[in-house]
Computed example of a mutant assay.
Amino acid sequence: MKTVKLLDREFRVSIPAEEIDNVIAQMAEKMNKDLAGTNPLFICILNGSFMFASDLMKQITVENSQITFMRLSSYDGMGTTGKVKKLMGFTEDLKDRTVVLLEDIVDTGITITNTLDQIKDYEAKEVLIATMLFKPDALIREVKLNYVGMEIPNDFIVGRGLDYDGMGRNLPDVYTVIEK
C-alpha cells in the first residue's frame, strides 16, 4: 500500500491517477457534446481545482471556450470552517453566457452554493457545476451537480489539487487519511 506523510498525518492511496484521468476524459467528452455552440466560460475555483481544471481543459474542444479563476477558502486543517471567504474574484462578463463552475470536490455543498449566490447577479444564461469528486454523505446544502467525476466516501483526502494545510496538492493520486 502506497502511503505518504504530510505534516502530522499519514495517507494511503485511494484513487490512482489513471482512474482519475479516465473519469476526467469521460467528463470532457460529455461536456464537448453538451456545450457545443455555447461559448462557455469555465470558472476554476482555486486553489484546489487548478489540477482538475488543467486536466479537463486540455480535452475541451468546444470552440470559443474560455477559463477564468475565482479563489475561495472554507477549510482549516482537516475540517470545513462552515464559512466561505472570497479571496479573489473574476472580471469576465457572464451576461448571457453558459458558465461552468469547476470544483475539485463537493462535500458539504457550502462552497458551491456560496459561489452560486455570488454569481447570480451576473445574469449568466445558465450555470452548470462540474466536480471531479463528490461526497454525497457529507452534503448539507442542496445542490444540483451537472457533471460528477466520481462519488467517494466521506473521508478526508488529499492529492490532485486537494490539500492538508497546503500540503499534498501536487500528488497525482488521491490519498485518504489513515486514522490512528
Rank of each mutant, 00 (worst) to 15 (best):
M1K: 13
K2V: 12
T3N: 02
V4A: 05
L6R: 02
L6K: 09
D8P: 01
R9F: 10
E10Y: 08
F11S: 13
I15N: 08
A17Q: 11
E19L: 10
D21E: 12
N22T: 10
V23D: 14
Q26W: 00
M27E: 08
N32V: 09
N32S: 10
K33S: 14
K33Y: 14
I43Y: 03
I43D: 09
I45L: 15
L46W: 03
S49G: 15
F50M: 03
S54W: 04
K58M: 15
K58W: 14
I60S: 09
I60C: 06
I60T: 08
S65G: 04
Q66P: 07
T68C: 13
F69K: 12
F69G: 13
D76C: 04
D76G: 13
G77N: 05
T80M: 09
K83D: 07
K86Q: 10
E92G: 01
K95M: 06
K95Y: 12
D96V: 03
D96C: 06
V99P: 01
L101V: 12
L101C: 11
V106T: 06
D107Y: 02
T108R: 04
T111A: 04
T113Q: 09
Q118M: 15
V127F: 06
L128R: 13
L128H: 02
I129L: 14
A130D: 11
A130N: 10
A130T: 11
T131H: 09
M132A: 14
L133A: 02
F134H: 14
P136S: 03
I140L: 03
I140Y: 01
R141E: 07
K144S: 03
L145C: 04
N146M: 00
N146Y: 00
V148Y: 04
G149W: 07
I152T: 01
N154L: 05
G159C: 11
G161D: 07
L162H: 05
L162E: 04
Y164D: 15
R169C: 12
N170R: 13
P172S: 08
V174C: 01
Y175P: 08
K180E: 15
K180A: 14
